[in-house]
Nucleic acid binder design. Structure first.
Lengths: 233, 233
DNA sequence: GTCTATACCCCGATAGAC
DNA sequence: GTCTATCGGGGTATAGAC
């Protein structure tokens, strides 16, 4: 009986995976806005109505793809961090590079999570955890460097009360051990990192930046400096 | 005769404008990927086939919307610059603020040009001119500041040959009078600025950054410093 | 330049048989 | 859990009359 249950569960997992794989393929050709259960079913040789046993609606399939994508880029970032050495700048660069590499390898999944919101689709709460993973990896790098000593953080810019309040809240909810000004700087660097990647992926660098690898390297080194990690170590 | 021609031309311009207005409205509810000539025609009380006299295909309408959007944000940036005073940092911030303000006021047009590419749509060459306007406004700020003296540009980061070559090419094609390292830094700041705006508009700051205005202000001040503009002046 | 009509496609979601 | 059939929409694009 439990063997049968196991077989059923496995079959269900496999079909679910096949549906998501095909949906990801269609993300590339049609885009998230036009993701269609019928087209997925057609390609899989199933009746469209059968898919509703796996995903109760189109939006649920979309949600699954979004969570998977956040998890994939988050895992890429975390693995890069685990493989990196001890030098703070090298760790920072490793995470940034991993994000860009994943994005270049999965442009349509990247667009799904970091591009324009899909009209009519409202992200459920379940995506926020996976969505935070890259940011947390970056914070961890800065945190470690900071814990290892010195690094007075170039917080010579004015820091308004409200921004400070955000940072303090984040410190608590995420358990970050980092001075608020540094956390603010890290948050900005997080957004700016994705600005670089998005511009490259979404075509803004066409006829502007050709040496993409080297340009990116240089830019994230600057971002590292903004959060208090210097090259000289 | 020429009065008739004038009337005809005016009518054509007006209908064209009405089509684009309605299309922009639909951008908001359906997104660029689902922009539909039929729906536009229906809303305008025209037969769908009549629209083909104005835009030979859906993609041509899309192109018109894209060019308009680039021109609108570009003009917002340029007007902000024209109104700004002489202080380099203030000028930089004014342009950044204008971009963000326009984006917040026109989120769907912003998504159209800075969000995920529309699948199956290939941007024609005509968009590159308008697309460059914001970047050029930013460069002009740095250029003026640089021409006004000092500002040794913190180019203490390594600058590979290939990146230098890109910068030199840009210097020539755009007629920029700026040392290559500074131009590289400005290009990165340009992408990073839109990273900040996109994260805010596309929902990544949800439950992360609440004090959006102040956070943005602080972040673009940092970007200004990255391109060699300091607060102390 | 606008219309109707048409060819030929697409979709999400559900009902009910097996 | 899969199917067929169905409801009730949607779309691009063209032909040909006016």
């Amino acid at each position: 009986m439990s063997a049968i249950e196991g077989a059923r569960a496995r079959a269900r997992r496999e079909v679910t995976a096949a549906i998501k794989d095909e949906a990801r393929r269609q993300l590339a050709t049609e885009g998230a806005a036009k993701l269609s259960l019928r087209a997925v079913a057609r390609e899989l040789g199933m009746a469209s109505s059968a898919l509703y046993r796996y995903f109760p609606s189109r939006d649920d399939l979309l949600t699954a793809l979004i969570i998977d994508a956040y998890d994939a880029v988050g895992e890429a970032a975390e693995r890069a961090l685990a493989r990196a050495g001890a030098a703070p700048l090298a760790r920072w660069t490793a995470v940034c590079r991993a994000v860009r590499r994943w994005a270049l390898a999965h442009p349509h999944e990247y667009a799904l999570i970091y591009g324009s919101p899909v009209p009519g689709y409202a992200a459920p709460q379940d995506t926020t955890g996976p969505a935070a993973r890259v940011g947390l990896a970056l914070i961890r790098v800065v945190e470690d460097a900071h814990a290892a000593g010195d690094r007075p953080a170039p917080d010579d810019l004015a820091l308004p009360q409200k921004v400070l309040a955000d940072a303090e809240r984040l410190r608590k909810t995420l358990g970050v051990r980092l001075p608020a000004p540094v956390l603010v700087e890290a948050t900005a660097a997080w957004a700016e990192l994705f600005g670089l990647v998005s511009f490259e992926l979404f075509g803004q660098f066409e006829r502007v930046v050709d040496a993409r690898d080297a340009f990116f390297e240089r830019a994230v080194t600057r971002l590292a400096r903004n959060v208090g990690l210097s090259a000289a170590e």
